[in-house]
Design a protein around this nucleic acid. Structure first.
Lengths: 249, 249
DNA sequence: TTATTTCCATGATCTATATCAAAATATCTG
DNA sequence: CAGATATTTTGATATAGATCATGGAAATAA
Protein backbone atom coordinates (compact mmCIF):
# COMPACT_ATOMS: atom_id res chain seq x y z
CA UNK A 1 0.00 0.00 0.00
CA UNK A 2 1.23 3.45 -0.92
CA UNK A 3 2.41 5.60 1.91
CA UNK A 4 0.84 8.81 3.07
CA UNK A 5 2.87 11.08 5.26
CA UNK A 6 2.39 14.62 6.37
CA UNK A 7 -1.31 14.45 6.86
CA UNK A 8 -2.96 17.86 7.12
CA UNK A 9 -4.52 18.95 10.39
CA UNK A 10 -8.12 18.23 11.22
CA UNK A 11 -10.43 21.20 11.34
CA UNK A 12 -10.61 21.08 15.07
CA UNK A 13 -7.05 22.30 15.02
CA UNK A 14 -8.65 25.67 14.38
CA UNK A 15 -9.68 25.40 17.99
CA UNK A 16 -6.02 25.26 18.89
CA UNK A 17 -5.27 28.36 16.88
CA UNK A 18 -8.18 30.00 18.62
CA UNK A 19 -8.74 28.36 21.95
CA UNK A 20 -10.68 31.29 23.45
CA UNK A 21 -14.28 30.56 22.84
CA UNK A 22 -15.04 34.15 23.69
CA UNK A 23 -13.08 35.53 20.76
CA UNK A 24 -15.12 38.24 19.02
CA UNK A 25 -16.19 38.02 15.40
CA UNK A 26 -13.75 40.69 14.26
CA UNK A 27 -10.84 38.66 15.62
CA UNK A 28 -12.11 35.32 14.35
CA UNK A 29 -10.08 33.60 11.66
CA UNK A 30 -13.32 32.56 9.99
CA UNK A 31 -14.43 36.15 9.59
CA UNK A 32 -14.26 36.31 5.83
CA UNK A 33 -16.15 33.00 5.45
CA UNK A 34 -18.80 33.78 7.99
CA UNK A 35 -22.02 35.67 8.54
CA UNK A 36 -20.58 39.06 9.57
CA UNK A 37 -18.97 39.59 6.18
CA UNK A 38 -19.87 43.06 4.96
CA UNK A 39 -21.09 44.36 8.30
CA UNK A 40 -20.03 47.72 9.76
CA UNK A 41 -17.97 47.59 12.93
CA UNK A 42 -20.84 48.94 15.01
CA UNK A 43 -23.21 46.32 13.61
CA UNK A 44 -20.61 43.67 14.22
CA UNK A 45 -20.38 44.62 17.86
CA UNK A 46 -24.11 44.28 18.17
CA UNK A 47 -24.12 40.90 16.47
CA UNK A 48 -21.40 39.87 18.90
CA UNK A 49 -23.72 40.49 21.84
CA UNK A 50 -26.24 37.88 20.73
CA UNK A 51 -23.81 35.15 19.68
CA UNK A 52 -23.25 32.32 22.15
CA UNK A 53 -19.98 30.52 21.61
CA UNK A 54 -20.14 26.88 22.61
CA UNK A 55 -17.68 24.72 24.49
CA UNK A 56 -16.38 21.97 22.30
CA UNK A 57 -18.56 18.95 21.71
CA UNK A 58 -17.28 15.38 21.48
CA UNK A 59 -17.67 13.19 18.42
CA UNK A 60 -21.28 11.95 17.98
CA UNK A 61 -22.70 14.73 20.15
CA UNK A 62 -26.16 15.72 18.90
CA UNK A 63 -26.26 19.47 18.30
CA UNK A 64 -30.01 19.34 17.75
CA UNK A 65 -32.61 16.90 16.55
CA UNK A 66 -36.12 17.20 15.14
CA UNK A 67 -37.66 16.82 18.55
CA UNK A 68 -35.78 19.75 20.05
CA UNK A 69 -37.48 23.11 20.10
CA UNK A 70 -36.13 25.44 17.42
CA UNK A 71 -34.33 28.32 19.03
CA UNK A 72 -31.10 28.91 17.16
CA UNK A 73 -29.15 28.69 13.97
CA UNK A 74 -25.56 27.50 14.29
CA UNK A 75 -22.32 28.28 12.52
CA UNK A 76 -19.53 25.73 12.76
CA UNK A 77 -16.51 27.21 14.53
CA UNK A 78 -14.26 24.18 14.53
CA UNK A 79 -14.59 20.55 13.60
CA UNK A 80 -17.38 19.22 11.41
CA UNK A 81 -20.99 18.05 11.54
CA UNK A 82 -23.43 15.98 9.54
CA UNK A 83 -27.18 16.52 9.20
CA UNK A 84 -29.70 13.76 8.55
CA UNK A 85 -33.41 13.40 7.95
CA UNK A 86 -35.31 10.19 8.43
CA UNK A 87 -38.16 8.56 6.59
CA UNK A 88 -41.11 7.07 8.46
CA UNK A 89 -39.71 3.56 8.09
CA UNK A 90 -36.49 4.56 9.84
CA UNK A 91 -34.27 4.91 6.79
CA UNK A 92 -31.98 7.93 7.07
CA UNK A 93 -30.46 10.28 4.55
CA UNK A 94 -27.32 12.25 5.31
CA UNK A 95 -28.35 15.62 3.87
CA UNK A 96 -25.09 17.45 4.36
CA UNK A 97 -21.65 17.82 5.91
CA UNK A 98 -20.73 21.12 7.53
CA UNK A 99 -17.34 22.74 8.05
CA UNK A 100 -16.13 25.90 9.80
CA UNK A 101 -18.01 29.00 8.73
CA UNK A 102 -20.99 27.03 7.42
CA UNK A 103 -24.53 27.38 8.72
CA UNK A 104 -26.58 24.57 10.22
CA UNK A 105 -30.32 24.71 10.75
CA UNK A 106 -31.39 27.00 7.91
CA UNK A 107 -34.12 24.57 6.90
CA UNK A 108 -35.75 25.09 10.30
CA UNK A 109 -36.74 28.70 9.69
CA UNK A 110 -39.95 28.24 7.74
CA UNK A 111 -41.66 25.89 10.18
CA UNK A 112 -39.85 27.27 13.20
CA UNK A 113 -38.91 23.69 14.04
CA UNK A 114 -35.85 21.64 13.22
CA UNK A 115 -36.40 19.55 10.09
CA UNK A 116 -33.20 17.57 10.49
CA UNK A 117 -30.75 16.20 13.05
CA UNK A 118 -27.24 17.57 13.44
CA UNK A 119 -24.37 15.55 14.90
CA UNK A 120 -20.68 16.26 15.45
CA UNK A 121 -18.30 14.14 13.36
CA UNK A 122 -15.30 14.95 15.53
CA UNK A 123 -14.53 17.25 18.46
CA UNK A 124 -16.24 20.43 17.33
CA UNK A 125 -17.62 23.77 18.43
CA UNK A 126 -20.19 26.19 17.12
CA UNK A 127 -21.43 29.75 17.36
CA UNK A 128 -25.06 29.75 18.37
CA UNK A 129 -27.30 32.46 16.90
CA UNK A 130 -30.63 32.68 18.74
CA UNK A 131 -33.02 33.20 15.86
CA UNK A 132 -35.34 35.67 17.58
CA UNK A 133 -32.47 37.94 18.51
CA UNK A 134 -31.06 37.60 15.03
CA UNK A 135 -34.35 38.72 13.51
CA UNK A 136 -34.55 41.53 16.01
CA UNK A 137 -31.19 43.05 15.17
CA UNK A 138 -31.71 42.12 11.52
CA UNK A 139 -34.52 44.64 11.33
CA UNK A 140 -31.98 47.42 11.71
CA UNK A 141 -29.26 45.69 9.70
CA UNK A 142 -30.26 45.03 6.11
CA UNK A 143 -26.75 43.82 5.38
CA UNK A 144 -27.20 41.03 7.89
CA UNK A 145 -30.46 39.93 6.29
CA UNK A 146 -28.81 39.92 2.89
CA UNK A 147 -25.97 37.79 4.24
CA UNK A 148 -28.46 35.32 5.65
CA UNK A 149 -30.36 35.26 2.38
CA UNK A 150 -27.12 34.68 0.53
CA UNK A 151 -26.21 31.75 2.76
CA UNK A 152 -29.58 30.14 2.24
CA UNK A 153 -29.35 30.65 -1.49
CA UNK A 154 -25.90 29.09 -1.55
CA UNK A 155 -27.05 25.99 0.28
CA UNK A 156 -30.06 25.76 -2.02
CA UNK A 157 -27.81 25.87 -5.00
CA UNK A 158 -25.49 23.19 -3.71
CA UNK A 159 -28.47 21.01 -2.83
CA UNK A 160 -29.65 21.25 -6.44
CA UNK A 161 -26.25 20.02 -7.52
CA UNK A 162 -26.56 17.17 -5.10
CA UNK A 163 -29.88 16.29 -6.73
CA UNK A 164 -28.08 16.09 -10.04
CA UNK A 165 -25.49 13.85 -8.40
CA UNK A 166 -28.06 11.58 -6.75
CA UNK A 167 -30.31 11.39 -9.77
CA UNK A 168 -27.90 11.17 -12.67
CA UNK A 169 -24.37 10.24 -11.71
CA UNK A 170 -22.61 6.88 -11.61
CA UNK A 171 -20.82 5.64 -8.49
CA UNK A 172 -17.45 6.79 -9.86
CA UNK A 173 -18.78 10.23 -10.73
CA UNK A 174 -20.40 10.55 -7.32
CA UNK A 175 -17.17 9.82 -5.46
CA UNK A 176 -15.09 12.05 -7.73
CA UNK A 177 -17.56 14.92 -7.31
CA UNK A 178 -17.66 14.42 -3.56
CA UNK A 179 -13.88 14.45 -3.18
CA UNK A 180 -13.51 17.60 -5.24
CA UNK A 181 -16.28 19.34 -3.32
CA UNK A 182 -14.45 18.62 -0.06
CA UNK A 183 -11.16 19.71 -1.59
CA UNK A 184 -12.68 23.02 -2.68
CA UNK A 185 -14.13 23.71 0.74
CA UNK A 186 -10.88 22.87 2.52
CA UNK A 187 -8.97 25.15 0.20
CA UNK A 188 -11.45 28.00 0.86
CA UNK A 189 -10.64 27.55 4.55
CA UNK A 190 -6.91 27.83 4.04
CA UNK A 191 -6.12 24.13 4.21
CA UNK A 192 -4.51 21.94 1.63
CA UNK A 193 -6.75 21.16 -1.33
CA UNK A 194 -5.04 17.81 -1.83
CA UNK A 195 -4.31 16.36 1.61
CA UNK A 196 -7.11 16.16 4.12
CA UNK A 197 -9.04 14.00 6.52
CA UNK A 198 -12.40 12.41 5.82
CA UNK A 199 -13.92 13.19 9.18
CA UNK A 200 -17.07 11.25 8.32
CA UNK A 201 -17.29 7.45 8.16
CA UNK A 202 -17.44 5.57 4.87
CA UNK A 203 -21.01 4.73 5.66
CA UNK A 204 -21.89 8.43 6.07
CA UNK A 205 -20.30 9.11 2.69
CA UNK A 206 -22.15 6.19 1.11
CA UNK A 207 -25.44 7.30 2.59
CA UNK A 208 -24.95 10.89 1.51
CA UNK A 209 -24.17 9.87 -2.08
CA UNK A 210 -26.91 7.28 -2.38
CA UNK A 211 -24.51 4.31 -2.50
CA UNK A 212 -23.75 1.22 -0.42
CA UNK A 213 -20.70 1.34 1.86
CA UNK A 214 -19.15 -1.49 -0.10
CA UNK A 215 -19.40 0.51 -3.30
CA UNK A 216 -17.65 3.50 -1.72
CA UNK A 217 -14.90 1.23 -0.49
CA UNK A 218 -14.46 -0.45 -3.86
CA UNK A 219 -14.49 2.76 -5.89
CA UNK A 220 -11.95 4.39 -3.59
CA UNK A 221 -9.71 1.35 -3.74
CA UNK A 222 -9.88 1.42 -7.52
CA UNK A 223 -9.16 5.17 -7.60
CA UNK A 224 -6.09 4.36 -5.54
CA UNK A 225 -4.97 1.55 -7.86
CA UNK A 226 -5.34 4.00 -10.76
CA UNK A 227 -3.11 6.52 -9.00
CA UNK A 228 -5.82 9.13 -8.59
CA UNK A 229 -5.70 9.18 -4.81
CA UNK A 230 -3.85 7.70 -1.87
CA UNK A 231 -5.91 6.59 1.10
CA UNK A 232 -4.76 5.76 4.58
CA UNK A 233 -7.73 5.21 6.79
CA UNK A 234 -9.42 8.57 7.18
CA UNK A 235 -6.55 10.45 5.54
CA UNK A 236 -6.74 11.03 1.83
CA UNK A 237 -4.42 12.60 -0.69
CA UNK A 238 -5.59 13.67 -4.14
CA UNK A 239 -2.78 12.83 -6.55
CA UNK A 240 -4.35 13.68 -9.89
CA UNK A 241 -7.00 16.35 -9.52
CA UNK A 242 -7.20 16.86 -13.27
CA UNK A 243 -8.22 13.26 -13.79
CA UNK A 244 -10.60 13.35 -10.83
CA UNK A 245 -12.14 16.50 -12.21
CA UNK A 246 -12.63 14.86 -15.57
CA UNK A 247 -14.56 12.06 -13.85
CA UNK A 248 -17.20 14.29 -12.29
CA UNK A 249 -19.57 13.94 -15.23
CA UNK B 1 -59.39 1.04 -19.09
CA UNK B 2 -61.17 2.81 -16.25
CA UNK B 3 -62.87 6.03 -17.13
CA UNK B 4 -61.97 9.43 -15.82
CA UNK B 5 -64.50 12.18 -16.20
CA UNK B 6 -64.74 15.59 -14.66
CA UNK B 7 -61.10 16.44 -14.84
CA UNK B 8 -60.12 19.37 -12.66
CA UNK B 9 -58.99 22.61 -14.27
CA UNK B 10 -55.39 23.30 -15.13
CA UNK B 11 -53.67 25.97 -13.13
CA UNK B 12 -53.76 28.35 -16.01
CA UNK B 13 -57.48 28.56 -15.37
CA UNK B 14 -56.47 30.89 -12.60
CA UNK B 15 -55.66 33.26 -15.44
CA UNK B 16 -59.28 33.05 -16.46
CA UNK B 17 -60.49 33.88 -12.99
CA UNK B 18 -58.03 36.76 -13.04
CA UNK B 19 -57.41 37.85 -16.58
CA UNK B 20 -56.15 41.31 -15.65
CA UNK B 21 -52.41 41.05 -15.43
CA UNK B 22 -52.38 44.39 -13.68
CA UNK B 23 -54.33 43.13 -10.68
CA UNK B 24 -52.70 44.36 -7.47
CA UNK B 25 -51.35 42.02 -4.80
CA UNK B 26 -54.14 42.80 -2.35
CA UNK B 27 -56.72 41.67 -4.91
CA UNK B 28 -54.80 38.61 -6.08
CA UNK B 29 -56.29 35.24 -5.32
CA UNK B 30 -52.81 33.95 -4.51
CA UNK B 31 -52.36 36.53 -1.78
CA UNK B 32 -52.28 34.16 1.16
CA UNK B 33 -49.82 31.81 -0.59
CA UNK B 34 -47.53 34.52 -1.82
CA UNK B 35 -44.75 36.82 -0.78
CA UNK B 36 -46.82 39.74 0.58
CA UNK B 37 -48.29 37.63 3.37
CA UNK B 38 -47.93 39.54 6.62
CA UNK B 39 -47.20 42.91 5.04
CA UNK B 40 -48.93 46.13 6.05
CA UNK B 41 -51.14 47.76 3.45
CA UNK B 42 -48.71 50.63 2.95
CA UNK B 43 -45.83 48.22 2.44
CA UNK B 44 -47.93 46.19 0.08
CA UNK B 45 -48.58 49.24 -2.07
CA UNK B 46 -44.87 49.85 -2.27
CA UNK B 47 -44.15 46.26 -3.20
CA UNK B 48 -46.77 46.58 -5.89
CA UNK B 49 -44.83 49.38 -7.53
CA UNK B 50 -41.81 47.18 -8.24
CA UNK B 51 -43.64 44.06 -9.40
CA UNK B 52 -43.85 43.50 -13.15
CA UNK B 53 -46.70 41.24 -14.15
CA UNK B 54 -45.95 39.26 -17.27
CA UNK B 55 -48.12 38.47 -20.27
CA UNK B 56 -48.74 34.78 -20.51
CA UNK B 57 -46.02 32.57 -21.89
CA UNK B 58 -46.62 29.56 -24.12
CA UNK B 59 -45.64 26.00 -23.25
CA UNK B 60 -41.85 25.46 -23.46
CA UNK B 61 -41.11 29.19 -23.18
CA UNK B 62 -37.81 29.72 -21.35
CA UNK B 63 -38.34 32.10 -18.44
CA UNK B 64 -34.59 32.31 -17.87
CA UNK B 65 -31.50 30.20 -18.38
CA UNK B 66 -28.04 30.12 -16.87
CA UNK B 67 -26.66 32.34 -19.60
CA UNK B 68 -29.14 35.14 -18.93
CA UNK B 69 -28.07 37.94 -16.65
CA UNK B 70 -29.63 37.65 -13.20
CA UNK B 71 -32.03 40.50 -12.66
CA UNK B 72 -35.18 39.13 -11.08
CA UNK B 73 -36.86 36.55 -8.95
CA UNK B 74 -40.19 35.24 -10.22
CA UNK B 75 -43.39 34.08 -8.60
CA UNK B 76 -45.69 31.86 -10.63
CA UNK B 77 -49.04 33.58 -11.21
CA UNK B 78 -50.70 30.95 -13.36
CA UNK B 79 -49.65 27.72 -15.02
CA UNK B 80 -46.55 25.82 -14.02
CA UNK B 81 -42.80 25.68 -14.63
CA UNK B 82 -39.89 23.30 -14.31
CA UNK B 83 -36.31 24.13 -13.45
CA UNK B 84 -33.28 22.13 -14.59
CA UNK B 85 -29.54 22.13 -14.13
CA UNK B 86 -27.13 20.42 -16.46
CA UNK B 87 -23.93 18.52 -15.95
CA UNK B 88 -20.90 19.20 -18.13
CA UNK B 89 -21.63 16.14 -20.25
CA UNK B 90 -25.08 17.43 -21.14
CA UNK B 91 -27.13 15.31 -18.78
CA UNK B 92 -29.90 17.29 -17.15
CA UNK B 93 -31.65 17.08 -13.82
CA UNK B 94 -35.13 18.48 -13.30
CA UNK B 95 -34.63 20.19 -9.95
CA UNK B 96 -38.20 21.28 -9.35
CA UNK B 97 -41.73 21.95 -10.51
CA UNK B 98 -43.33 25.27 -9.61
CA UNK B 99 -46.99 26.19 -9.19
CA UNK B 100 -48.87 29.45 -8.53
CA UNK B 101 -47.50 31.36 -5.57
CA UNK B 102 -44.14 29.58 -5.66
CA UNK B 103 -40.80 31.32 -6.18
CA UNK B 104 -38.39 30.60 -9.00
CA UNK B 105 -34.78 31.73 -9.05
CA UNK B 106 -33.95 31.74 -5.34
CA UNK B 107 -30.77 29.78 -5.98
CA UNK B 108 -29.48 32.67 -8.09
CA UNK B 109 -29.11 35.12 -5.20
CA UNK B 110 -25.74 34.06 -3.81
CA UNK B 111 -23.81 34.24 -7.07
CA UNK B 112 -26.04 36.92 -8.58
CA UNK B 113 -26.38 34.65 -11.60
CA UNK B 114 -28.98 32.06 -12.54
CA UNK B 115 -27.85 28.59 -11.52
CA UNK B 116 -30.66 26.82 -13.33
CA UNK B 117 -32.99 27.06 -16.32
CA UNK B 118 -36.71 27.69 -15.95
CA UNK B 119 -39.25 26.65 -18.57
CA UNK B 120 -43.06 26.88 -18.77
CA UNK B 121 -44.86 23.52 -18.75
CA UNK B 122 -48.10 25.00 -20.08
CA UNK B 123 -49.44 28.48 -20.82
CA UNK B 124 -48.26 30.36 -17.78
CA UNK B 125 -47.59 33.79 -16.33
CA UNK B 126 -45.40 35.17 -13.56
CA UNK B 127 -44.84 38.16 -11.34
CA UNK B 128 -41.35 39.47 -11.83
CA UNK B 129 -39.54 40.90 -8.83
CA UNK B 130 -36.43 42.86 -9.83
CA UNK B 131 -33.99 41.79 -7.15
CA UNK B 132 -32.27 45.15 -6.67
CA UNK B 133 -35.56 46.91 -6.09
CA UNK B 134 -36.65 44.12 -3.79
CA UNK B 135 -33.51 44.52 -1.69
CA UNK B 136 -33.98 48.27 -1.71
CA UNK B 137 -37.50 48.23 -0.32
CA UNK B 138 -36.59 45.24 1.85
CA UNK B 139 -34.26 47.49 3.83
CA UNK B 140 -37.28 49.34 5.20
CA UNK B 141 -39.51 46.26 5.38
CA UNK B 142 -38.16 43.61 7.73
CA UNK B 143 -41.33 41.61 7.26
CA UNK B 144 -40.57 41.28 3.57
CA UNK B 145 -37.08 40.01 4.29
CA UNK B 146 -38.46 37.49 6.72
CA UNK B 147 -40.96 36.29 4.12
CA UNK B 148 -38.18 35.85 1.61
CA UNK B 149 -36.07 33.99 4.16
CA UNK B 150 -39.03 31.78 4.95
CA UNK B 151 -39.55 30.92 1.30
CA UNK B 152 -35.91 30.01 0.86
CA UNK B 153 -35.99 27.91 3.98
CA UNK B 154 -39.07 26.09 2.79
CA UNK B 155 -37.52 25.22 -0.55
CA UNK B 156 -34.37 24.11 1.23
CA UNK B 157 -36.39 21.82 3.40
CA UNK B 158 -38.28 20.27 0.51
CA UNK B 159 -35.02 19.79 -1.38
CA UNK B 160 -33.67 17.80 1.58
CA UNK B 161 -36.72 15.59 1.37
CA UNK B 162 -36.07 15.14 -2.30
CA UNK B 163 -32.55 14.01 -1.43
CA UNK B 164 -34.06 11.38 0.81
CA UNK B 165 -36.31 10.34 -2.05
CA UNK B 166 -33.50 10.21 -4.62
CA UNK B 167 -31.06 8.49 -2.33
CA UNK B 168 -33.16 6.01 -0.43
CA UNK B 169 -36.54 5.32 -2.01
CA UNK B 170 -37.66 2.61 -4.41
CA UNK B 171 -39.41 3.43 -7.69
CA UNK B 172 -42.84 2.76 -6.14
CA UNK B 173 -42.09 4.96 -3.15
CA UNK B 174 -40.79 7.72 -5.39
CA UNK B 175 -43.96 7.83 -7.49
CA UNK B 176 -46.23 7.60 -4.46
CA UNK B 177 -44.35 10.42 -2.72
CA UNK B 178 -44.42 12.54 -5.85
CA UNK B 179 -48.16 12.14 -6.40
CA UNK B 180 -48.95 13.03 -2.81
CA UNK B 181 -46.68 16.05 -2.92
CA UNK B 182 -48.56 17.34 -5.97
CA UNK B 183 -51.88 16.54 -4.33
CA UNK B 184 -50.90 18.52 -1.26
CA UNK B 185 -49.84 21.54 -3.27
CA UNK B 186 -52.99 21.51 -5.39
CA UNK B 187 -55.12 21.33 -2.28
CA UNK B 188 -53.24 24.29 -0.75
CA UNK B 189 -54.21 26.25 -3.85
CA UNK B 190 -57.89 25.45 -3.54
CA UNK B 191 -57.99 22.70 -6.15
CA UNK B 192 -59.02 19.12 -5.76
CA UNK B 193 -56.48 17.01 -3.88
CA UNK B 194 -57.52 13.92 -5.81
CA UNK B 195 -58.21 14.97 -9.40
CA UNK B 196 -55.60 16.96 -11.23
CA UNK B 197 -53.47 17.29 -14.34
CA UNK B 198 -49.84 16.25 -14.61
CA UNK B 199 -48.71 19.29 -16.52
CA UNK B 200 -45.23 17.87 -16.93
CA UNK B 201 -44.30 15.01 -19.27
CA UNK B 202 -43.60 11.51 -18.02
CA UNK B 203 -40.00 12.06 -18.92
CA UNK B 204 -39.85 15.20 -16.74
CA UNK B 205 -41.32 13.19 -13.89
CA UNK B 206 -38.86 10.35 -14.48
CA UNK B 207 -35.92 12.71 -14.64
CA UNK B 208 -36.97 14.55 -11.50
CA UNK B 209 -37.32 11.32 -9.53
CA UNK B 210 -34.15 9.72 -10.81
CA UNK B 211 -35.97 7.04 -12.82
CA UNK B 212 -36.31 5.99 -16.46
CA UNK B 213 -39.48 7.04 -18.32
CA UNK B 214 -40.37 3.39 -18.79
CA UNK B 215 -40.26 2.81 -15.05
CA UNK B 216 -42.60 5.72 -14.39
CA UNK B 217 -45.01 4.39 -16.98
CA UNK B 218 -44.89 0.88 -15.60
CA UNK B 219 -45.30 1.89 -11.96
CA UNK B 220 -48.23 4.14 -12.79
CA UNK B 221 -49.89 1.41 -14.83
CA UNK B 222 -49.47 -0.98 -11.93
CA UNK B 223 -50.86 1.58 -9.46
CA UNK B 224 -53.87 1.79 -11.77
CA UNK B 225 -54.31 -1.98 -11.93
CA UNK B 226 -54.19 -2.03 -8.14
CA UNK B 227 -56.94 0.58 -7.95
CA UNK B 228 -54.76 3.25 -6.36
CA UNK B 229 -55.15 5.73 -9.19
CA UNK B 230 -56.90 6.25 -12.51
CA UNK B 231 -54.85 7.75 -15.32
CA UNK B 232 -56.08 9.20 -18.55
CA UNK B 233 -53.20 10.80 -20.37
CA UNK B 234 -52.18 13.82 -18.35
CA UNK B 235 -55.22 13.59 -16.10
CA UNK B 236 -54.89 11.63 -12.89
CA UNK B 237 -57.27 10.72 -10.13
CA UNK B 238 -56.10 9.45 -6.76
CA UNK B 239 -58.54 6.77 -5.67
CA UNK B 240 -56.94 5.47 -2.51
CA UNK B 241 -54.83 8.14 -0.84
CA UNK B 242 -54.50 6.09 2.33
CA UNK B 243 -52.81 3.29 0.43
CA UNK B 244 -50.68 5.72 -1.58
CA UNK B 245 -49.64 7.41 1.62
CA UNK B 246 -48.64 4.07 3.12
CA UNK B 247 -46.36 3.49 0.13
CA UNK B 248 -44.26 6.62 0.60
CA UNK B 249 -41.67 4.85 2.75
C1' DT C 1 -3.41 -4.02 28.66
C1' DT C 2 -7.17 -7.07 26.70
C1' DA C 3 -11.91 -7.61 25.26
C1' DT C 4 -15.57 -5.89 22.57
C1' DT C 5 -17.52 -3.38 19.21
C1' DT C 6 -17.57 -0.84 15.16
C1' DC C 7 -15.59 0.11 10.76
C1' DC C 8 -13.45 -1.04 6.40
C1' DA C 9 -12.04 -3.94 2.39
C1' DT C 10 -12.78 -7.52 -0.76
C1' DG C 11 -15.12 -11.47 -3.05
C1' DA C 12 -19.49 -13.90 -4.72
C1' DT C 13 -24.13 -13.47 -5.95
C1' DC C 14 -28.56 -11.29 -6.84
C1' DT C 15 -31.99 -7.87 -8.21
C1' DA C 16 -34.33 -3.51 -9.12
C1' DT C 17 -34.32 -0.83 -12.55
C1' DA C 18 -31.96 0.70 -16.82
C1' DT C 19 -31.64 -0.06 -21.59
C1' DC C 20 -33.13 -1.67 -26.02
C1' DA C 21 -36.98 -2.49 -29.17
C1' DA C 22 -41.36 -1.68 -31.12
C1' DA C 23 -46.18 -0.73 -31.27
C1' DA C 24 -49.95 2.50 -29.87
C1' DT C 25 -51.42 7.22 -28.75
C1' DA C 26 -51.25 11.84 -28.63
C1' DT C 27 -49.80 16.30 -30.32
C1' DC C 28 -48.26 19.39 -33.44
C1' DT C 29 -48.03 21.77 -38.29
C1' DG C 30 -49.02 23.23 -42.68
C1' DC D 1 -57.64 17.38 -41.59
C1' DA D 2 -53.66 14.39 -43.04
C1' DG D 3 -49.20 13.53 -42.39
C1' DA D 4 -45.30 14.06 -39.47
C1' DT D 5 -43.32 14.08 -34.97
C1' DA D 6 -43.16 13.28 -30.29
C1' DT D 7 -44.79 10.90 -26.23
C1' DT D 8 -46.35 7.00 -23.80
C1' DT D 9 -46.94 2.16 -23.01
C1' DT D 10 -45.53 -2.58 -22.88
C1' DG D 11 -42.25 -6.46 -23.43
C1' DA D 12 -37.49 -8.66 -23.46
C1' DT D 13 -32.88 -8.39 -21.89
C1' DA D 14 -28.75 -6.50 -19.60
C1' DT D 15 -26.17 -4.43 -15.85
C1' DA D 16 -24.59 -1.26 -12.21
C1' DG D 17 -24.59 -1.47 -7.95
C1' DA D 18 -27.00 -3.71 -3.88
C1' DT D 19 -26.85 -7.39 -0.75
C1' DC D 20 -24.74 -11.24 1.61
C1' DA D 21 -20.65 -13.14 3.65
C1' DT D 22 -16.12 -12.97 5.78
C1' DG D 23 -11.68 -11.50 7.70
C1' DG D 24 -8.88 -7.94 9.28
C1' DA D 25 -8.03 -3.25 11.28
C1' DA D 26 -9.30 0.58 14.26
C1' DA D 27 -11.57 2.52 17.83
C1' DT D 28 -13.67 2.20 22.31
C1' DA D 29 -14.50 0.34 26.66
C1' DA D 30 -13.40 -2.25 30.63
Amino acid sequence: MAELVNVMPLFNDLAKIEPEHRVACQDCSLFRLCLPLGLQNSDLAQLDTIIKRSQSYKRAHTLFSTDNEFKSLYVVRSGSFKTTISAVNGREQVTGFYFPGEFIGLDAIHQQSYQSNAKALETSSVCELPFENLQEIGKKMPQLQIQLLTRLSKELSSDKNLMLLLGKKTADEKIATFLLSLSKRFQDRGFSATEFQLTMSRSDIANHLGLAVETVSRVMSRFQEDGLIVINGKAISLRNTTAINAMCG
